[in-house]
Structures are given as structure tokens and as C-alpha cells.
Design a protein around this nucleic acid. Sequence first.
DNA 1: CAGTGGTCTAGACCACGTA
DNA 2: ACGTGGTCTAGACCACTGT
Lengths: 258, 258
Amino acid sequence: MDNLTDGDVTLLATTPEGESYLSTSLHERIRRDIETKIFSGQWQPGQRIPAEDALASAHQCSRMTINKVLTALAKAELIVRKPKVGTFVALRRSNTAVIEVLDVSVEVTNLGLPYSFTLLRRAKRKALKSDCAKLSLPPASNILELRCCHFAGNHPFCLEDRIISLVSVPDAEHESFVAMAPTTWLISKIPWSEAEQSIHAVLADEETSRILDVPRGSAGLTIERNTWLADRFVTWARFSYPGDAYHISAKFVSATGI
Amino acid sequence: MDNLTDGDVTLLATTPEGESYLSTSLHERIRRDIETKIFSGQWQPGQRIPAEDALASAHQCSRMTINKVLTALAKAELIVRKPKVGTFVALRRSNTAVIEVLDVSVEVTNLGLPYSFTLLRRAKRKALKSDCAKLSLPPASNILELRCCHFAGNHPFCLEDRIISLVSVPDAEHESFVAMAPTTWLISKIPWSEAEQSIHAVLADEETSRILDVPRGSAGLTIERNTWLADRFVTWARFSYPGDAYHISAKFVSATGI
DNA sequence: CAGTGGTCTAGACCACGTA
DNA sequence: ACGTGGTCTAGACCACTGT
């Protein structure tokens, strides 16, 4: 069997300083090697690391394999690559966290509770000046204003205020949103989009506290979301949650986020 | 000049169906092509896309180049690759958002305000049962408890409660934290780490509202963070912000986050 | 058995920063 | 002038899946 003399396998088994994870691929093991050097402090932040050629011969592999590893590490911002200069251990991690953005119905279902919603308001109107501030939409555009309450079992879970641009989504005018929640409907219409969101802490105002069935003046989280499709404004939404019933989790790897 | 007859450039200039972005690289342009096919709906979610070989000949490039593009698109979760089966347009985006996690001193400085902090409490003690719930630490471990207030100019900006494991970071016992904020000090000691954080909305309690100089019962955001280094618990921190003065922003591309 | 993606190699040319 | 990373090619072998 010439498998036994396969260049790859024998190479991998004799990779320097590597516990031979025979099941993982070469570039994964090399990546682990390099990450270990960085995390252990053997390669200090800011320090220049060996060139691709040098790493290739050190790991007895081709330059392309090293390039693949370093490109991935650069994307992960563990290292910084300066073309024609060299590769350096990053001074600081990007300190970003990834949070999951769930559809309300999915959130509720994940909690093992029956999901339902009620449409509280539906109005077609022209965008006012006050809208345009948050909507990045020209004044007097046709918009659809919606408000609905999402329930987990019999309990109000979240209040949704939404504005949909009828310029971008004309079909919305003929949809009642009684049977299908706005989010669900929009997803079916606008499969891909860009969004920007911000999270605020607020005190529940009178109407919100009444709808969500919490004491007036309780703490709440609001998530505001603006959505575009190729630079065209599609929809704005604000989700109001009773604060004690909700939180947002995130995981990350970071230097500065300690 | 033989630049004019450079194989790459001529290839790129004649790439089928591509506006010739002469400044960008081949794989970038191919990636754009494929993304356009997906975003435009020409390739529907769930649909199988041509094999690497086919894409390579369609774009008149090598299979490796296509592989690089598809690997990147798979990482971005625009497509799903099933080894030995094929490549498919993803059914749904991962609906995750990336939020920036800033050091408080950086946040304040970014606002153009002078940063300072005051140490309010520093106590060495054994971990209680109540601590262990949030700390994932064995009971009676030596810990250091800190509380400090971060200022933007003369105004309190954020209250930090922190617990440091003296098992993982024994040096902390001999550090006063008067001249250097805990975060800054920890970053210098623990350059890399993993963290998990959650964001809550709360009502400011009496002590917090007094320190932050806000009315009792105002809405606030708290960020809780647990940090590990290679599975060893390092530190826990809670940052309390007055809610109206702070929010968290995130940008993402999503299907379900509409 | 044919087709697929996963992986790796050994070359190559380029532009450009540093010296 | 040299070294660097950025990029691309043309081939190769593999394991596995579906038919």
C-alpha cells in the first residue's frame, strides 16, 4: 500500500513540537501550534513572527499551508499582517462579542412555552419629521405603522413597535398581519438584509407597563433595529422587554474585555 | 513593460459576467459574483450550487481559488458545504450580531472626556456559597473583592464590582489598585482570555443610585462578565451604568433579525 | 463507481517597504 | 537589491456519499 508512504501522513506524524492529532488536518495543527505560542506568551504582543517561508520549513509544509493558517489568524485578529513588512502578534484583541439575535417566536419556543401574538395597531400614514430622525427615510414617504404584543403562554413577553417602508415593501399594504407576525412576514419577503441595532435600558412608560403587565416604572430592555436592503431602508422596530424577564448573552475571546 | 501581458490581469479583465474591478483580487471578485447570485435570489436558499470544478471553469480560474472563496462564504454562513455531497445556499443566516466590548477608560476617552476612577472597596476573603453560583469556583477559595467607580470628568460614569480569583491570579493580593484600575492591571497580567457576558436591565438600588448620582429606581444597564484562562476562572465583573446615559450598538447581516 | 469537497504541494509573479 | 506578504495555478490524493 503506498498509503503508508504518503507524503502528507508521514509529514504530519513528524511535525515538530506537535502532539500528533492524527485526526485533525495539518493546517489546524499548525494553527494550534501558533496560537499556543501566542497565548503562552512565547511570542509577545507586537513581536514579529517568522516569515511564511521560515514557518513553512519549520513545520515542513508548503508556504500555501502556512499562508492559509496566517490568513485565518489574521481574520481572527490574533495577528496583524503588514504586506511587505512582516507578521506581528496583535497588540490587543478586537474585544468584540457576538450576540445571538433571535426572532421573538423562536425565543419563546426555546423557552418551551407556547407562542402567540396580537396585533394592537395597524396604520398606514405618511412619515413625519419625527419619524425621519430614526428612520433615515425622506419625509412624507408612505409607511405602515404596527404594534403587536408577543405572548409566552398567557403572559405578555415583548411589545413590538414597527414601521415598514411601503416604498421598499409595497406588498405590506395588503397584508393584515393578523395571522402572521410582521417579523415572520418580512423574513419571507426580504430574505437578506443588513441591520443595525442598539440596546437601551428604559423605564416602562404607562402604556407599555399596562400592555406588558408590569408595574409602571419598572426597568426594561429595549432593542431598536433598523434594517436595510442594499442601502434602501426597509423597516424599523423596537422590542420592549420587561427587564427582569430578559437578558442578552454573549461569548467572546478578548484581551481588553477582562 | 511585461506587466501588460500579465496572465492574472488579462484573465481578470475577461472574467465572465464580472464588471472588471481591476483593483480587487480575483477571489474577491468571484466572491462578489457569488454573493450577488445569492442575495439577488438567483440562487435560492437551499439550492445546490455548482461544484468547485464547474465554478472554476466558469470563472476561468483554478479550483483552489474557488475553494478559497467558498470556504470564506461557508465561514460567513452564506453557504453550507457538505463534504462529498455538494454546496448549498444557506437556509437562514446565523442571525448573530457583533458588539464592541470596550474598556471603560477607552469608552470615556472616546467620548472626549477625562477619565478617572476611585477604589471604593478592596477586601480579601474566602468565596462564599453565594459567590460560587456566579463564579464557577470551589467554595472557600481565596478571592479579592473590589468595587470602584469610573468617572467621566467629574461625573460618575459606571460602577464596577469585581471578584478576582487569587488562585488564578495570586499577584493581585499585593496590588493596591489605587493607581491602576483593576481592568488595566488584569490586562497586563492576563493578556488573553475567554469571557462570557450578559446584559441586564435593572433598577438602581439605593447604594448604586447614590454612587452613580441618579435617582433611586432609575433604569440601568448592567453588564456581567465571567473571564477564564484556559478553563480556569480568573475574574467576575459587573458594570452598572445609568441606563439613560448608555447603550450598546451592534451591526449585522441577517435574515431573521429583521 | 463517479462525483464531491478537504487538503496539500511546489512552484510562480507581483508590488512594495526597508535598507 | 532583497525580503515580505498577496495571489494564483495545476496538479495530486483522500474519504466518503450517493447511485
